[in-house]
């Protein structure tokens, strides 16, 4: 079976359901919208000396990713879980019985789309907010800025892929979303917030992967990390790989 045929089929699947457009539109609107809001209402006089010293204009553009990523989680989950909730999975696997082709094709198409939307979101967010910040703004050519903005797009794509893997393991929209959203929104932040659990929390996918978006290491009092931007991203890649392999194992082993 030609793998390109599977890619084409998965592309048709993804572009012909409503959930794709609304989740991805939300990623863009929430991220860019809140970034614009933060920067338009930003008052540098309220910063203390330490915050002023570590002020990171790029972070102002990208911190709204924290909210925008929730829609990306939903996108990643739904791409996989609606196959199960609708019963389509049995029709899909009868057409593409090789599980690795089916899963890889679906993940490749959805991750590529998430990457495109992720990059569009991070660059739009960056340029809009830097314009709004005026004198405090920074150019894309400054040190590490291009890496951070591109990294934000990569982060969103990788996050979507991670969620596809988890959804393939759990095979249910409700189960996957109710595990992933609290995990990324609350657990990850909570573990990093406390001194005692920080070392563990830093290795969670969003905290490690998020490091790539930082230009100034300790901006807004963020704690020190034992890894660099790409090191952190590598940790998230490992998490994602584990989720994808887990999803593949479940798909192979369980009855459709």
């Amino acid at each position: 079976m030609a793998f390109t045929a599977v890619l084409q089929s998965e592309w048709t699947k993804i572009r012909t359901v409503a959930s794709t457009s609304w989740t991805l539109a939300l990623v863009f609107l929430v991220t860019v919208g809140f970034a614009a809001l933060f920067s338009a209402t930003f008052d540098p006089n309220r910063l203390d000396a330490a915050q002023r010293a570590t002020f990171d204009p790029t972070a102002t553009s990208l911190s709204s990713m924290e909210l925008g990523q929730l829609a990306m989680i939903v996108f990643g989950v739904l791409v996989v879980s609606t196959e199960y909730s609708t019963g389509m999975i049995r029709t899909s696997l009868a057409a593409v019985p090789r599980r690795e082709h089916f899963l890889l094709g679906k993940m490749a198409v959805a991750t590529a789309l998430a990457l495109a939307v992720g990059l569009l979101t991070s660059f739009a967010s960056f340029f809009l907010t830097q314009a709004l910040l005026g004198d405090l703004g920074i150019g894309i050519g400054e040190e590490n800025v291009l890496r951070a903005v591109t990294g934000a797009g990569l982060y969103l794509a990788l996050l979507a892929l991670f969620c596809m893997g988890v959804a393939a393991m759990l095979r249910s929209s409700v189960a996957a979303i109710s595990v992933l959203v609290p995990f990324f929104l609350i657990v990850s932040n909570l573990l990093v917030g406390f001194e005692a659990t920080r070392t563990v929390g830093q290795y969670l996918p969003s905290n490690a992967g998020g490091r790539i978006m930082q230009v100034v290491p300790h901006a807004f009092d963020s704690p020190e990390t034992p890894y660099g931007p790409w090191g952190g991203f590598g940790i998230m890649v490992l998490w994602t790989l584990a989720a994808v392999l887990g999803g593949y194992a479940v798909l192979r082993k369980r009855d459709a």
Binding site: V17, M88, I89
Partner: peptide
């Protein structure tokens, strides 16, 4: 065993 949110045509096309 089809995706209800997709049209009949698109369900068959994929």
């Amino acid at each position: 065993a089809m995706h209800g949110g997709r049209s009949a045509y698109n369900n068959l096309l994929c």
